[in-house]
């Protein structure tokens, strides 16, 4: 998961990038909306995987940083009439700073205790969004976000999202393939041993959490502008669980896995909702299938299939 891109990978990235740029030309309004939202969730899932796949801790409260980015940006734009750039940056910084504080405490713990503490902090964020009615409008939702005129257009907002998300993914790719990224995998693989080759493991895990909070904040800020509103559900633990499932579905042991997971889950949700209201059941069944049969996600499955086709017997590998 920290190896350089293969030739195939490079071509695939280029093709997807071109497809993203061409989508508005060939697609309907509906497709553009779906594309925008999918990109946002891809970034959200990818940011979470920095904590899960790379540092080896399960955050059950990642929605908190998404919600903080979204709320702060939306409130500054709408209530205080700030211009886009400062509002957006402040929103992302608020998410990052919160993540920095939370991570300071969470990284004292590992495993299930880490997961529970992240959950607790995120529920505190949820409770504040829920109760601080004068600012967030509580469970009525913060509706009618003022989107700057420049972006108040479906296609322009789509391209804005493409630029931000693709740039974010590129930065995340560099981070995960940096000296830090590879060392972080070592921390995940063997915390004790990593400490004894001189790696300050707690600081590494803290750093990963903060970066993840930053990009979750970016995704949240985009999301609030896309749907022109923020709702307390965005901070609730079920939202954290949903993005966790996206990450897991794609595969946590691969850089691009979470993006694929987010895209697939998102489309499945849209499709399912056309036919039935029981999307949770479908999601539950998908989750069961992953847990019982696809522990390394879709990317892992893909690798096993290609390996089989090539007649290799290796099932493990890294992107």
């Amino acid at each position: 998961m920290t190896a350089p891109l293969t030739a195939f990978g490079k071509v695939a990235c280029l093709v997807i990038l071109l497809a993203l740029l061409a989508l508005p030309v060939i697609g309907s309004d509906y497709l553009i909306d779906i594309g925008t939202e999918m990109l946002i969730f891809a970034l959200f899932a990818l940011s979470l995987n920095l904590i899960i796949g790379y540092s080896g801790n399960v955050s059950f409260g990642h929605a908190a940083y998404f919600a903080i980015g979204g709320y702060v940006n939306a409130i500054l734009l709408t209530t205080y009439g700030w211009p886009l750039l400062p509002a957006f940056v402040t929103g992302v910084l608020a998410a990052t700073l919160t993540a920095a504080v939370v991570a300071y405490f969470c990284t004292r713990l590992t495993d299930i205790y880490f997961a529970m503490l992240t959950l607790a902090f995120s529920m505190l964020v949820w409770a504040i969004a829920f109760k601080w009615r004068s600012v967030t409008h509580g469970d009525d939702g913060f509706v009618g976000v003022t989107v700057p005129a420049l972006l108040d257009d479906r296609m322009r907002f789509y391209y804005f999202t493409v630029i931000i998300v693709v740039a974010s993914i590129a930065v995340l790719w560099v981070i995960t393939h940096s000296a830090f990224g590879r060392s972080l995998v070592a921390v995940r693989e063997n915390l004790g041993r990593a400490g004894f080759i001189g790696i300050h493991t707690r600081r590494m895990r803290w750093q990963a959490f903060v970066v993840a909070g930053f990009f979750a904040g970016v995704a949240g800020a985009l999301f609030g502008m896309l749907i022109k509103g923020m709702y307390v559900e965005s901070a609730f633990w079920t939202q954290s669980a949903q993005v966790l499932i996206m990450t897991l579905l794609g595969g946590i042991y691969s850089f691009f896995g979470p993006i694929i997971g987010a895209a697939v889950l998102f489309m499945l949700e849209r499709l399912t909702n056309e036919y039935t209201e029981y999307w949770p059941t479908v999601l539950g069944v998908i989750l069961l299938v992953i847990l019982l049969f696809l522990p390394d996600g879709l990317v892992g499955l893909g690798k096993r299939l290609t390996a089989k086709a090539k007649g290799k017997d290796k099932t493990e590998g890294a992107t």
Partner: peptide
Amino acid sequence: LLLTFAIVLI
């Protein structure tokens, strides 16, 4: 943990 979450959904 996720298995129990699948049970919640279903």
